[in-house]
Design a protein around this nucleic acid. Structure first.
Lengths: 183, 183
DNA sequence: TATGCTATGTTTAGACCTAAACATTTAGAG
DNA sequence: CTCTAAATGTTTAGGTCTAAACATAGCATA
């Protein structure tokens, strides 16, 4: 039975998580479905935000990975420097990915790289003026756009939901398998 | 100023979203930060779940994209068939990605592909026995694992949070830029 | 001072994804 | 019957990420 297009993309969320859980219970009685209604909307929301940001940034000529890197450095405050290890920790991506991000940003003239002078082998990444300009030019647009996406939440609701998500994040963070050993 | 490693990966969430918002307000007064405490934990949770699932599946010799494909077909019920277009809609990935996923799964013998006989140009994807076996063998493990990750939520809290997320998803889905025209 | 462990980064192989360019088929409008 | 627009898929170019293999630099200790 070929299912027809009952859930156009433009409408509300295609296949609510509740339907997915129902389908599993119908098809495979006993399937443990408790997590579905949490994990599925979470993933879809993350994807909506990520896709929307990627498209906005594409118009501005930046990619999300680079913006993430520059943002962390900019937020660290003057002199806008962090070690690659610290970048990995703050962005939740592997050391290898940071190495590649920094290499790309360095070629683009947005950051510089140098070894630390404090006796460790650490590599210190610094925002250049061009990198600083780029982040100043884009961050408000990105955050304004995202604020508009969550505009349906009243400030109180937003605060409450934020607290719940942070609490869940802390808990899942304790239980989940972490990044590979090389990090 | 090179910041030292104050937030080890193993501890609770590195840099709570509230600190990120504070940092922006400190560094750039007036930055619109309302969305940060929603979007940041959302992304981090999605990444924790995705990383955890990827690692579990790696042990089982499957990749997440393939599992997603097989799951949608399996949940559709006998005869486990859907058009590629429908797969794209249900999985929220572009038509091009579906084409590649199906090609990989076809090579692996997990699905078959044929053109529909109903006069349209649609391509119908069908689960093979091997694909069916694979999904039966893995879905409980994945869902059991994920249920354990959200075990801190009491059933009532889980229900409430699920409803809030679904509501937010519906709303953001209405406001966000959607998939490109080719879909 | 050898030796090896630990901490840090970089590189590479393999997967995936999106966007855009193509290709093909159906269905309509004349 | 012909030409065009719409609907569907596939392919390709470019970019990202993870995991694992490497490569090195400190450090501790015998």
């Amino acid at each position: 039975m070929v299912v027809k297009d009952e859930y156009p993309f433009d409408g509300p969320s295609p296949y609510p998580a509740a339907e997915i859980a129902d389908a599993w219970r119908r098809e495979r009685p006993g399937t443990p479905t408790e997590s579905i209604e949490i994990v599925t909307p979470l993933w879809r929301l993350a994807k909506l935000f990520a896709d929307d940001r990627r498209r906005l940034l594409a118009d501005l000529g930046v990619d999300p990975a680079t913006l993430d890197l520059l943002s962390v450095l900019r937020r660290a405050g003057s002199p806008y420097e962090l070690t690659t290890r610290e970048l990995s920790r703050r962005t939740l991506v592997t050391a290898g990915a940071i190495s590649q991000r920094v290499a790309r940003a360095e070629v683009a003239g947005l950051v510089t790289r140098r070894t630390a002078d404090d006796g460790t082998r650490a590599v210190v990444v610094t925002l250049t003026d061009a990198g600083h300009d780029l982040i100043e030019r884009t961050v408000d647009q990105v955050l304004t756009r995202e604020a508009s996406l969550v505009a349906s939440l009243a400030p109180d609701d937003r605060q409450r939901l934020a607290a719940q998500l942070q609490e869940l994040l802390d808990d899942v963070g304790r239980r989940a398998r972490k990044l590979p050993p090389d990090v």
